[in-house]
Simulated assay, not measured.
Amino acid sequence: MLNRLTCFMKKHITTIYVTSIILLVIITFQNINIITPLAATSSITATSYPTSLNELSLNGSLIKLVIVSSGSIFKPTITASDFVLNNAPIGLGISIVTLSPSDNNEAYLQLSYNGTVFNNVITNFTVTALPSSNPKAENLTSNNLTISPAIPLEGYLNYYANGLSYPTSVAISGYNIKNNKLYLNIGLITTKAVSITQNVTFYYYIDIFNENGISIGNSGSYSSPNSITGVPSKNIAALINKQLTLNSALTAAYRITVIITSVSIN
């Protein structure tokens, strides 16, 4: 800023310019917005498809999540990183997340599972929707779901039944106590499609256990199964009077296991 001071002296005018320096200190305050998760006023429910989660069906299973609160929704940009699986077996993850096209408070999580074996029933499996999943920034954890391990085949802890093919009936048709020969009638079925020009072949083995769980006879094995070809164009086969020679007498209490290891359709 320039202030002009003028002095009049006899016929001589002297003009003196005085510069005033004003130091202006400007302090600005920056507003910092800190977003913290809100205390949850909503809740979330989880439903599995299939309804019974099993080690053998985990890969590809769906979890339906529904936010239960008026006005609470999922963001349209949700991804797998917006959710956490709690108490999940090793190897279980989320492969795809889909928002319901009709209800934006519903989301579907498709599970992926690498097959890592676990042996205990999990009764407290839950899903957490992180604050990044919804506009209210709420941290929402679902109800408990149960995940069951695959049931090991008796006597073979590393082998598991997949349920696609199985025996429909097992009945003793005869037993010769003199030579310990046991005769069985067994029905087999597969849920796989068999066309009118195809035949199904079942690969199977049979084990007989006494009351103490000790094997007393078998026919075939997991590594070397028996085989039988079914009825043409049908998904069934029947073993009639299948003979097994026991290595000890049949006890009053016993168990018969029939295991289908695989099927081929040609």
Score class of each variant (00 low, 15 high):
T36R: 02
T41F: 01
N54D: 08
I260M: 05
A150M: 13
S72R: 01
I16C: 10
P76C: 09
L153H: 01
T191N: 00
T128W: 09
Y254C: 03
L24T: 14
S81L: 13
L184A: 14
F202Q: 11
I214A: 06
T201V: 11
D207F: 06
A237H: 03
H12E: 15
G91Q: 13
G217Q: 09
I260F: 05
S264Y: 03
R255K: 15
S165T: 10
F209I: 02
A171Q: 14
N59L: 12
D103H: 14
A88S: 15
N199M: 07
P152C: 08
I186F: 08
V258R: 04
I260Q: 08
L250K: 03
S248G: 12
T19E: 07
S42L: 04
F125G: 06
P131D: 07
N124H: 13
T190Y: 12
G163E: 01
L244N: 10
L2T: 04
I78P: 07
G115M: 15
A237F: 11
A39D: 02
N3Q: 08
G60S: 14
T261E: 00
V18T: 00
S148L: 15
I186W: 03
F118L: 12
T245V: 06
M1R: 07
V231T: 11
N226T: 09
I94Q: 02
S133H: 05
Y205P: 11
I44T: 08
P101M: 00
A46C: 03
Y108S: 11
I26Q: 15
G91D: 15
V97C: 05
I78Q: 06
N104Y: 02
T261K: 10
L92D: 13
T191M: 06
Q110C: 11
S72E: 03
S173P: 01
T261Y: 11
A252I: 10
A80V: 13
S70N: 14
V97E: 00
T51G: 09
A40D: 10
I151P: 09
A107T: 06
I44H: 04
L92R: 07
N119K: 04
S173K: 13
Y108F: 15
N158F: 04
A40P: 03
I22Q: 05
T128S: 04
L38G: 03
T168R: 09
S52N: 07
S132R: 08
F29D: 06
A252Y: 11
K10H: 12
S215K: 02
S248E: 03
T168S: 04
